[in-house]
Design a protein around this nucleic acid. Structure first.
Lengths: 149, 149
DNA sequence: TCCGAAAGTTAGCCTAGGCTAAGAACTGTT
DNA sequence: AACAGTTCTTAGCCTAGGCTAACTTTCGGA
């Protein structure tokens, strides 16, 4: 039997590794859209309207950037705008927002369950929610069900 | 006592939320560098050299892209090149690679511990390792120590 | 009503990170 | 020693996502 150490699974096949990175880049591309629609949905729900200026404030970004990004979201069929009347989600945008929120909340609860304080869990979820696969999320849910169920 | 529901911690203060997104963007910026130096370190360790063409293959990216990216890494003091002789890490790059690998391995072990199969854990770690805070990583380590220790 | 402040857009710029196509430079083999 | 094939770079292009400055549009209060 050839050498088989336990620790260092170091170099996956090039193709497999390339596929992973490609998936990664794909996730990066959708992350912004998810953050925006999630925030817009939150604002609509909590404050009744989602104005670009508030999105800018909460994203920590200039209004010009919001205009440009919202333009892309509109092009992609996720958002509708009525100038000076705020931003709205299309059905597709709403679907994405709902899924994003569910993922976000799941990740937060999971992080708390494994020992993070609520504040840090919120912070980390912001980044992690876009990069956890469905399988990972399912595992998190299973984990929570066991602990809490 | 005012209303206090358990589920929906929905809108953090704008400033705090903006800060989170800013951190997020910061992490995104360093993610590429970490992936490259981690891969270069792996190639150096496992194959004795890290040629740009192999980096391109494993990143799933064109050689021209590698040239450009390595140029930025060089500018930032992480990598050195000897054309046709492969890529090398500076001390700083080595430090980053070591930290990245440690994070990566920790995340993989953690994901497996919470129920993911090894393959999926590898895939997910690729994305998650760049977005887990030190506090989160510490929590993961604590979790592992409890289960396994 | 009108006018100033707030909100939104536009123009012009930048960086990172992708691509292809074409050319230059090196290496190993004969 | 020379050539073929590999490797690397360059040029030129693109998109996403940032910025500031200047402009327009709308809203609300005096």
């Amino acid at each position: 039997m050839p050498t088989r150490r336990s620790t260092p699974r170091p170099l996956p096949p090039a193709k497999k590794q390339a596929a992973r990175f490609a998936l990664q880049r794909e996730a990066d591309r959708t992350a912004t859209a998810e953050d925006y629609v999630e925030l817009i949905a939150d604002l609509l729900r909590e404050e009744g309207e989602a104005r670009a200026v508030d999105v800018a404030r909460r994203m920590g970004v200039s209004q010009a950037t919001v205009t440009a990004t919202v333009g892309r979201l509109q092009r992609d069929g996720l958002v509708e705008t009525k100038p000076y009347r705020g931003l709205f989600l299309t059905a597709e945008g709403q679907t994405m927002a709902t899924a994003a929120k569910a993922r976000h909340d799941l990740v937060v609860r999971f992080l708390i369950a494994v020992g993070l304080d609520a504040e840090t869990a919120e912070e980390d979820a912001e980044g992690l929610e876009h990069h956890a696969s469905d399988k990972a999320l399912a595992a998190f849910a299973r984990f929570l069900a066991e602990r809490e169920g």
